[in-house]
Design a binder for these strands. Structure first.
Lengths: 124, 124
DNA sequence: CTAAAAGCTGACGTTGGCGTCAAGGGCAAG
DNA sequence: CTTGCCCTTGACGCCAACGTCAGCTTTTAG
């Protein structure tokens, strides 16, 4: 079992964030008799999972619903619906991002290629 | 030339958002003598471009820097650097999203498929 | 044993992209 | 003329995921 500071440095988030996660039921913590939080080593993975879900645009409430499924594969109806909904959303977001990336590429090309063969674009 | 209400309904954003865009130099507007905003029809496209960039995670300031390049292909050094940086960021974000989507798919599979085949733990 | 480092619980601050009144001005139709 | 819709500029509200004190307790290193 590790304390909050070590979990923070191992997982790359702040202690404030970890306390926030506990408060919002994303990451439960045991306590010492004196009240300090104790986490299993596996919490590092879990924190990284949480970060990934945040990065994918999920809200804390959604993550709180989905994490139990990730843990033990028991899914409520709410969780299943949310899983599908979020999966669809992510799918659409990927498509949008690909499109926007293409537009940026176009702009980059127009801005670098015909100007001159100076430096940056030679590799692409 | 169209007024703000029509641009709003055509482009699918609120008038509040359009005023915000002007305030942050994303979408300039001419004015009637009485002070009402006037936009060219091409503003509809531009608004949709702005929405796409927002959806891709760019901040207003970045969009303000990049939009001139989109318009006339004249790129400042700052704009070029930003273009590359944002393109890289979007690229990475797509990778992250694909990974997260795969994880969700895994969870969905575990949560739906083995349900009819008794218990989950026997698999592992 | 002591002092620094690390933890604890509030509780207020921040940031962005708008939503939402509030209080007025302008202009075509009946 | 006046009704009614659209427009204007403030200015405050909002929400999420933390950052950042403040004041106090626990743990650890020397």
């Amino acid at each position: 079992m590790i304390r909050i500071g070590e979990l923070a440095s191992r997982s790359g988030v702040s202690t404030r964030a970890l306390r926030y996660y506990e408060e919002h039921h994303l990451l439960p913590a045991e306590r010492t008799t004196a009240g300090q939080r104790l986490y299993p080593e596996s919490a590092v993975e879990r924190v990284q999972m949480i970060q990934g879900l945040y990065a994918a645009g999920l809200a804390s409430r959604s993550i709180a619903v989905l994490l139990p499924c990730v843990d033990n594969a028991e899914a409520t109806d709410e969780a299943l619906g949310l899983l599908w909904a979020e999966r669809e959303r992510i799918d659409q977001q990927i498509l949008d991002l690909v499109q926007t990336r293409a537009r940026l590429d176009e702009v980059i090309t127009r801005a670098t290629v015909p100007e001159a063969c100076t430096s940056v674009a030679e590799q692409a």
